[in-house]
């Protein structure tokens, strides 16, 4: 089952075309990795899926993106609700300068939950799901900026999970972290796919092999190849994919 369908999508930054005729179906409850050299458009594409590109002036998009059968660009779609369904974790951990509790409760509060008991439950569940509850349960009132980088990133994942999204977009979530924090996040991501659909941009090809079920290879704004991770890495259909994953450029 696919949860997101993309058909003939093109994207321009002003006059520069950053994405060319992208067609892809993102399978549900699995991990899809986007790989490709810097500037190939993979992050841009990721941010289009929950319309974070709306924030950048001068972006023009054509083609269709359907999430659960609804065109995400149609007038009936409330972009705030879309982003509630399709959450996002960023490259650099970006907790708000408030307490750990308030960080996680930010999303639910945004969507109208004010009941203290209910919030407590949501915060605990999200922090447990993000495998950070045991580390922070005694200092929920402490400022989140006092945590280590790896903890901050898991907090950001918890914050994203607290609004109960169905899809989680992750933009190079481990590139700013040390190896140990990276492996913890990777383990976490693999557990999360039980409940969530995960789309992850990564620069690290070993990471794509380790964690992902499907891999999409982008080059110069084109989606060159998309398939099961094992197939893409063991018997790529395209010469360009083979050249990239064997390290001939990138």
């Amino acid at each position: 089952m696919s949860i997101i369908f993309v058909k003939d999508m093109c994207l321009w930054y002003g006059d520069h075309q950053a994405l060319k005729n992208v067609n892809i179906e993102i399978p549900e409850k699995s991990i899809t990795a986007f790989i490709g050299p810097s500037g190939c458009g993979k992050s841009t594409f990721l941010k289009t899926l929950n319309r974070m590109n709306d924030l950048i002036p001068g972006v023009k998009i054509t083609g269709d993106i359907c999430y659960e059968g609804t065109d995400i660009f149609s007038k009936e779609v409330d972009v705030n609700n879309l982003r509630k369904e399709i959450g996002m974790v960023f490259q650099k951990p970006n907790p708000f300068p408030m307490s750990i509790y308030d960080n996680v409760a930010y999303g639910p509060r945004t969507h109208g939950i004010t009941n203290r008991v209910q919030l407590d439950e949501i915060v605990e569940r999200a922090l447990r799901d993000a495998a950070i509850w045991d580390e922070v349960k005694d200092r929920l009132k402490k400022n989140a900026l006092g945590m280590s980088g790896g903890q901050q990133q898991r907090l950001c994942i918890a914050r994203a999970l607290a609004v109960e999204p169905k899809v989680l977009l992750m933009d190079e979530p481990t590139s700013a972290l040390d190896p140990i924090s990276t492996s913890r996040i990777e383990e976490l991501v693999m557990e999360l796919k039980e409940k969530y659909t995960i789309v992850m941009v990564t620069h690290n090809m070993q990471q794509a092999v380790r964690v992902s079920d499907y891999t999409a290879f982008f080059l110069l704004g084109e989606l060159v190849e998309f398939g099961k991770t094992d197939d893409v890495f063991s018997q790529p259909r395209e010469k360009r994919t083979e050249d990239y994953i064997t390290g001939r450029f990138g």
Partner: peptide
């Protein structure tokens, strides 16, 4: 990144300004 984080959680413009930008 604070603004992005808040928008990414589905917060509207005014909520982002009031809760994340103004306190800063």
């Amino acid at each position: 990144s604070y603004r992005e984080g808040a928008f990414g959680l589905g917060a509207g413009k005014w909520r982002v300004v009031r809760t994340v930008v103004l306190p800063g």
